[in-house]
């Protein structure tokens, strides 16, 4: 939408005003994230510019993100929980999405509503519900790692279901019949034909599941014991009690991590489009 040569002065003003406004909004979106990163290299423990000096001590010093026991422990726990959640959620979610993709399933809308309910219910309500459930004597999962993994899996599966369902919508089912008519048994068709085509969707869903677990802070505040300090919980406690620059280092690492994920998902999306021969 370039400005045509015959544009009126009014149109010219609108054209540049719109660009200026959009520029400011985009600046507003990105600047908090960019502003926080340099502060993690501050040699002093305060949060203003200009910084007096450069230092890596919030990464590798006594209080550093990669060296302090509390932070490395939190990172370790978060990774364990997120990887387990991703594995469970991807398997359960993909199976369910494959089932949902079959034609004329009775009560499909109701089933879908149940499956994506964890995404709809406000997290604070899920947290309290799970707390009471885990506290009952015959469950007893409060303050345990399996409890956290199960809770995160419930919260993460809707993202897998939605992503994989979306991928399956554009999946050409005649390919399965083609495979079968060439003599392949159902499991061969699944692993050799279906899986490679829906894999980008499954991986995207898995990444969503990973992020859901890795970022989750409210549920862990309720069901986690004192020893279960995941990374978000450690950060939350840090902000509540006393803000140390290590938090900015943690934030920086997480921002870089989400940038990497963003790029991965985008590449997967392009690959999926290429595989299916869709072009813009």
């Amino acid at each position: 939408m370039a400005l045509p040569a015959y544009a009126t002065p009014g149109e010219r003003i609108a054209y540049y005003a719109l660009r200026l406004f959009v520029g400011l909004v985009l600046l507003f979106l990105i600047s908090p994230i960019l502003a926080i990163m340099p502060l993690s290299f501050n040699s002093e423990s305060f949060f203003t510019y200009p910084m007096p000096g450069f230092s890596l001590k919030w990464y590798i010093g006594d209080e550093g993100f990669f060296t302090n026991g509390r932070w490395t422990g939190a990172l370790y726990l978060s990774v364990i929980v997120a990887v387990s959640t991703t594995a469970l959620a991807s398997v359960l979610g993909t199976l369910a999405a494959l089932g949902l993709a079959r034609a004329n399933l009775p009560g499909r809308a109701a089933i879908m509503a149940v499956l994506i309910s964890p995404m709809i219910v406000p997290v604070i309500i899920s947290a309290i519900g799970l707390f009471f459930f885990y506290a009952s004597p015959w469950v007893g999962l409060n303050g345990t790692i399996p409890g956290i993994i199960l809770a995160h899996t419930a919260l993460a599966t809707p993202f897998v279901v939605i992503t994989v369902t979306a991928t399956l919508m554009s999946f050409d089912r005649t390919l399965m019949r083609a495979g079968a008519s060439c003599g392949a048994p159902p499991h061969t068709v699944f692993f050799k034909v279906v899986m490679p085509l829906i894999l980008p969707g499954v991986i995207s869903g898995g990444l969503f599941a990973f992020v859901t677990s890795f970022d989750e802070v409210i549920v862990i505040l309720f069901i986690g014991g004192p020893e279960q300090r995941t990374l978000p919980r450690q950060m939350f406690a840090g902000i509540r009690e006393q803000i140390s620059p290590t938090i900015t280092a943690a934030a920086t690492v997480l921002i870089l991590f989400s940038t990497a994920l963003l790029i991965t998902v985008e590449l997967l999306r392009r690959r999926a489009e290429r595989l299916r021969g869709i072009r813009n």
Binding site: A35, L39, F47, V211, M235, F236
Partner: peptide
């Protein structure tokens, strides 16, 4: 920003 965790963005604003 959409992909950056809610907690990280809240942290950024807090600081």
């Amino acid at each position: 920003p959409f992909w950056t965790s809610l907690l990280v963005r809240t942290t950024a604003w807090t600081i």
